[in-house]
């Protein structure tokens, strides 16, 4: 087929281009992932006792992970579009992370020295990052699937962003199960789980985001 024939074919009756395609593909993926990770956290891992929902315990985590999810979702949408700048969303994600680390550090500093380590490690530091990773997998699959229909020209970066988004959403789900109260714990181990998912996304990106 000659190129002018192809052009003729593509242009004929082409109709308008879809609008806001990145948002329309990524938002349902994130929402479905959120429902899946929340559902799995409650059904398999078990929810925290109901009275705890009146305390800051789950809400600090949800606020942190939710803010990160918004920033990394924005980042993913930018990286899904050729030539779009990722600077602003990357800056926002780093600001959220920085604020949480500062808050965690400050609360740790306020503790008596001999209690700091137990506040940071809590009861579940060894399992927390992996639980977050596990709960992020539905979102990671859905987000990578959505990205395949978009146009990520930097597949590793786009995969990493999708991983961070999935990790943040997995962390929201995990907050429904996790009884740890220390903010430093959240800043360290939730972040580790989110970073782990980001690394998985970065590893998968170049393999699955080929087009």
């Amino acid at each position: 087929m000659r190129t002018d024939t192809l052009i003729e074919m593509l242009a004929r009756d082409a109709g308008p281009a879809p609008r806001a395609l990145a948002a329309r593909r990524l938002a349902p993926a994130a929402l479905a992932g959120l429902l899946a990770s929340g559902g799995i956290a409650v059904a398999i891992l078990g929810a925290i006792p109901a009275p705890m929902f009146a305390s800051h315990v789950p809400w600090t985590k949800i606020a942190y992970a939710g803010a990160l999810a918004l920033a990394t979702g924005w980042l993913t949408a930018r990286l899904a579009r050729p030539a779009a700048s990722a600077d602003a969303p990357r800056g926002l994600a780093l600001a959220v992370f920085g604020a949480m680390v500062a808050l965690g550090g400050a609360t740790l500093w306020a503790e008596p020295a001999e209690l700091r380590l137990s506040a940071l490690l809590g009861q579940s530091w060894k399992t927390c990052p992996f639980s977050v990773l596990f709960l992020s997998l539905p979102t990671l699959a859905a987000a990578l699937w959505a990205l395949r229909d978009l146009a990520p020209t930097r597949p590793r970066a786009a995969g990493a962003a999708a991983g961070l988004l999935a990790g943040s959403i997995g962390a929201i789900g995990y907050a429904l199960h996790c009884p740890e109260a220390a903010i430093a714990f959240v800043a360290a181990w939730y972040t580790a789980g989110i970073a782990l998912t980001g690394a998985l996304g970065a590893a998968l990106g170049p393999r699955v985001l080929r087009w």
Partner: peptide, 25 residues
Amino acid sequence: TLLALHLRRGTYDPELPVTAWVLAI
């Protein structure tokens, strides 16, 4: 590339130069 431009034209952001979008692809 023309096929890719066509299938992914929903990812064009009107705030960007068209040439930048096309070149990236």
